[in-house]
Amino acid sequence: MIDPFIEKLVGDLKPKKPLANRMLWMHCTGCLVMIAALILGLIGLRGDYINAMQTGAMFWKPSIFFFIWFGSILMITDLSRPGSSIKKQHIIPVLLGFLILLWQITSQISEYSFQAMIQSLNAKSAITCILIIFVGGAMVMSMTWKFWLSKTASDRPMLLGFLAGLSSSTLVATAYALNCDKDSVLYIFVYYIFSILTLSLVGSILGKKFLRW
């Protein structure tokens, strides 16, 4: 017996490539390289990079965002299919990022006065920092949305949207941290984390609306 509904679906059948996690990794790594090349090409490495290498700031600051970015991509691949959930071990890179931040908080509190940290917030580069992370992150998120997220079928679209915002903004933050010479944790908390959380929030709102299926 011919079922018209099934026949309609069969008539609409086109070959489709199954989602492969490696494609998302390639896309995101490509975006990271492109954004890093853009930032380094247009505004360059931080002026005090030799000193920053000696103090370690050249490494720990981008590492915070790099680990969070890495973990959030792992979690996106976890959540992209029906019935799947986040694997516990995939949270580890994100925790590692926060651990580096915590380590810097404890070491800077003993090293610098609170006054000096507050002063670091007056830096003129703050607006640039917010704009680059937010706008750059939004561009990366829109590319990732088209390339990957629109094809997913997650049971938790809002969380997936949040992770998309988080991964895109931390990707840009990783690259931008190579240029930024403000190493105060208060500065990082206020400007970096603010931009990252704002884009993540935008991502979760968009996810709730557009990633439902």
Binding site: I6, L13, K16, P18, L19, S80, R81, P82, T152, W213
Partner: peptide, 14 residues
């Protein structure tokens, strides 16, 4: 469900 299968079949991991 059949419609969802149709539109999201790429999320099936072979």
């Amino acid at each position: 469900t059949l419609m969802s299968l149709h539109s999201k079949r790429q999320t099936y991991n072979p």
